[in-house]
Nucleic acid binder design. Structure first.
Length: 845
RNA sequence: GCCCGGAUGGCGAAAUUGGCAGACGCAGCGGACUUAAAAUCCGCAGAUCGCAAGAUCGUGGGGGUUCAAGUCCCCCUCCGGGCACCA
């Protein structure tokens, strides 16, 4: 009876036991000093927001990372496997409103709860390097970086149109606006407000961020493409069209042309400029104000256009806006041919891209064609296909063509014309080649409480004054009343706001906005390398040892936001002399989503599966292993509880198998394998094939689902041989070798069970300190192969041949097969294809 | 509209370099053990026809290359994701 209970696999007793042991031994998962002599490996999973509950996406993410970390430990690497908390952010303020709990307490208790969940999962993190971004020890370095960037001209303040989420009651960065809505509130339309904001000059690195993508060849192509699109580099030309009245004096001194006398347009197709039949301004264009000043009728129409654009932007569907425009009554002069073209104002012209003005070439641009057709503007063809016999239908938008009707440029190719026309513009002073980016500077001011205070002071006498380093950190007041009032909460805390000017000592006030929380996550992984440093964000020597991150793992939803900001931050830190690498992560892996019943898990759909429930029912090992087994890590995973039960049954089988034969195995510990039986040889062969398969997968392919399947196959074979094992038909040292290695292979996927069985096999040190098994190709080799024999591509028979049989011998064996003989009787074998080790195909007529 | 994924049994999936399609698991069915059930163990299991031996069909659809195609090429459908008047 006692025996039976002991023989049952019960994760509820073994898992807590090991949790305690591991918690009492912080060195187990700790990174070793930089001079330990081992090769380093930095494996990182994206840090979570401490909502209070892990979800299955986290479980999957961390199961992948932990399996890799454990594998690398066993391969003898010095592994850094840290974890932290992206702990600033709006939910803490919302919770404060709802439950009257201060954000700090709410956040810290959530962290404690989630950390406990992580421990239950058995994740091997080095908690000595834990980073919590809402603590002053961390965010003071956000402030420090802000000041360094300010000194470098990478931080500036300007009033501008910004995205405002009414739900968050704060400004959002461009990257945080999804389809015109807030990234946190998918149904809340973002409006535009004029506000004074702090910006990071990420555009200064636009070209480098783009170029760097080519070198990140171990990042998913998908992420690189998304970033390329986001950066949106576009090569073209800026050209000045002159206002007609000013044209004459402009002819004498074009380079003197001011904003009032010229309209600068950006085009990628300057070669089509002889086909320009109007100039189109964005409704917000600087010139518009003076044009409408004397024309009330026009003013009304422009207001309408502006409103249409605003509505379309809010609806997130700028692409579908119906094009409207209004003629200003004024004309501009095309600088290349002196021809006048009408100036229009149109709702589809964006003020914040290029120069906010375009030349309209309806013959060679879809949008211009649509607009010109609607308003009866002339459509002129100036490009014809290289093969002039081809009949063209306008608009003809290809760049493979020849110029016509283009004065001195006629007969040039589009490409040649662009270059020549650019140099003409430059020489004459009415234009120049220009590279435009879609990427905008990163607006980081947030009118929220729970974030890093921006370390700036406003003094009536000295203006904007940075907080001196020795006054950092600017501490976020711990207890404030959170209300739903608009404006920055800190502006209602006089003791925070009122300060003295560092320069003149007079009364001054602090900046009351806080930083975007994406600042926190832009450099946290550097802090992990030196988390306790109180005099610098980190010791560059330590960071240099650990960086780049060897493997970064997270969800693809961060492809633009976090992953572009953190690339930017790394380049800034490099230019500050704090790091030598150009990119934070050498290799990036984006795991698929966890779904249930074909849909993303969400409270509203009621299909959320709680990790705690799974652990309580099946144990952490089964939960983790299922997360790896149910699908390859890069694909979406459909959570099926029956599948978890299946994995749990498998683990129980492993348990019984090892427990049953452990006494024999233990007794043979230390004895080398000198002789073996036929069945033992077959089992060792399977074992070494399994080692090879799993090791190879860890090296890159990462199809852990097939790794788990391979272990299951091995266990199936062992179980099929159970009677022989029990009867002593396999030498004890072989049994020891089989079970010991099985447990080693299991260790990255089911750490609790592996630890328990490892001990059961008489091992005393942690399994993480044991060497990962190496496959012996001699032992893995099959001595006989089954060769399928096809006739005309269809399988007819399988024949057995020696593994080293020559093609001739294989062919002979194939032709001798009885079914082959009867099928080929009376027919002609035209051709025999022998693929050694694979198959034989007979072409028969 | 453009770009990137994906589509394989009742379900999750496998097939790593063009070489036995469906490994492994779930659900299902049959059997053993049990008074019975659970658990466990053994076996069956793509579809159609057939008592069987076996035959035919089969990786979203259509065409092609090849001795051989889930895999390569061309065209199309559907699903997921990203971008979308960016001049």
């Amino acid at each position: 009876m006692a025996d039976e209970i002991e023989q049952r696999y019960d994760p509820a007793t073994i898992e807590p036991k090991w949790q305690q042991k591991w918690a009492a031994d912080p060195a187990l998962y700790a990174a070793e000093p930089v001079d330990c002599g081992k090769p380093k490996y930095y494996v990182l999973e994206m840090l979570p927001y401490p909502s209070g509950q892990l979800h299955m996406g986290h479980v999957r993410n961390y199961s992948i990372g932990d399996a890799l970390a454990r594998h690398m430990w066993m391969r003898g690497y010095n592994v850094l496997h840290p974890m932290g908390w992206d702990a600033f952010g709006l939910p803490a303020e919302n919770a404060a409103l709802k439950n009257n709990t201060p954000p700090r307490e709410w956040t810290l208790s959530n962290i404690a709860a989630m950390k406990r969940q992580m421990e239950r999962l058995g994740l091997g993190y080095d908690w000595a390097t834990e980073v919590t971004t809402c603590l002053p020890e961390y965010y003071r370095w956000n402030q420090w970086f802000f000041l360094r960037m300010y000194e470098k001209g990478l931080v500036y303040r300007k009033k501008s149109k910004v995205n405002w989420c009414p739900e968050c009651a704060t400004v959002l960065a461009n990257e945080q606006v999804v389809n015109g809505c807030c990234w946190r509130h998918e149904t809340t339309i973002v409006d535009q407000r004029d506000l004074e904001q702090w910006f990071f000059r990420i555009t200064a690195y636009a070209q480098e961020l783009l170029d760097g993508l080519d070198k990140l060849d171990e990042w998913p192509e998908k992420v690189r493409t998304m970033q390329r699109n986001w950066i949106g580099r576009s090569e073209g030309t800026e050209v000045d069209f002159f206002l007609a009245e000013e044209a004459e004096q402009g002819a004498g001194g074009r380079d003197q042309g001011s904003e009032k006398t010229r309209i600068r347009v950006f085009t990628t197709r300057v070669d089509t400029i002889y086909g320009a039949t109007s100039v189109q301004l964005a409704p917000q264009h600087a010139l518009v104000a003076s044009l409408v000043a004397t024309n009330p009728e026009l003013k009304v129409k422009v207001a309408e256009l502006l409103d249409q654009q605003k509505k379309a932007r809010e609806a997130g569907d700028l692409g579908a806006i119906e094009k409207h425009g209004v003629f200003t009554g004024r004309v501009a002069i095309n600088p290349y041919n002196g021809q006048p073209v009408p100036i229009w104002i149109a709702n589809y012209i964006l003020a914040d891209y290029g120069t906010g003005a375009i030349m309209s070439v309806p013959g060679h641009d879809e949008r211009d064609f649509e607009f010109a057709t609607k308003y009866n503007l002339p459509i002129v063809q100036v490009i014809q296909p290289v093969d002039s016999a081809v009949k063209v239908e306008l608009p003809f938008c290809s760049e493979e063509g020849t110029l016509i009707n283009s004065g001195e440029f006629t007969a040039l190719s589009c490409e040649d014309a662009q270059l020549l026309m650019q140099s003409v513009a430059e020489r004459s002073g009415f234009g120049e080649p220009k590279v435009t980016f879609r990427l905008k500077d990163w607006g980081v001011s947030r009118q929220r409480y729970w974030g890093t205070p921006i370390p700036m002071i406003y003094c009536d006498k000295d203006g904007i004054v940075p907080v001196p380093d020795d006054q950092l950190p600017v501490i976020l007041p711990p207890q404030i009343e959170i209300t739903q009032q608009g404006g920055s909460p800190l502006s209602r805390v006089p003791e925070f706001m009122h300060t003295t000017c560092p320069k003149c000592g007079g009364p001054a006030r602090r900046e009351t906005d806080t930083m975007d929380t994406f600042v926190d996550s832009s450099w946290y992984f550097y802090r992990y390398t030196d988390a306790k440093n109180s005099t610098a964000p980190y010791d560059p020597a330590k960071a240099q040892y650990w960086f780049s991150i060897d493997q970064y793992i997270g969800g693809v939803e961060h492809a633009i936001l976090h992953l572009i900001y953190s690339r930017f931050w790394t380049k800034v830190m490099r230019d500050l002399g704090l790091i030598v690498n150009d990119e934070p992560a050498r290799r990036l892996f984006t795991q698929g989503m966890v779904i249930k019943d074909g849909a993303k898990m969400s409270k509203s759909k009621g299909n959320v599966v709680s990790p705690d429930d799974m652990i309580a029912k099946y144990g952490a090992d089964a939960t983790r292993m299922y997360a790896l087994f149910a699908a390859p890590p890069d694909r979406d995973l459909d959570w099926q509880e029956d599948g978890v039960a299946g994995v749990s049954r498998f683990l129980a089988r492993v348990w019984r198998l090892v427990m049953k034969h452990a006494p024999v195995a233990r007794a043979a510990q230390g004895q080398s394998v000198t002789q073996n039986s036929e069945i033992g040889t077959a089992l060792l062969r399977k074992l070494h094939q399994t080692i090879a398969k799993i090791t190879l997968d860890f090296e890159g392919r990462w199809h852990f689902n097939t790794c788990v399947a391979a272990i299951m196959e091995l266990v199936n074979d062992l179980q099929a041989a159970d009677a022989q094992l029990a009867a002593g038909e396999v030498p004890a040292p072989v049994i020891h070798e089989l079970l010991r290695t099985l447990v080693l292979l299991l260790a990255p996927f089911a750490p609790y069970l592996a630890a328990e069985l490892w001990q059961e096999l008489g091992e005393e040190d942690s399994i993480l300190r044991a060497a990962w098994p190496v496959s012996d190709p001699e032992l893995a080799k099959e001595d006989e192969l089954e060769i399928p024999v096809q006739i005309n591509g269809k399988l007819v028979q399988v024949v057995r041949v020696a593994a080293d049989a020559t093609p001739k011998a294989i062919e002979a064996a194939a032709l001798a097969g009885e079914r082959i003989v009867s099928r080929t009787a009376g027919k002609i074998v035209v051709k025999v294809i022998v693929v050694p080790g694979k198959l034989v195909n007979l072409v028969v007529k």
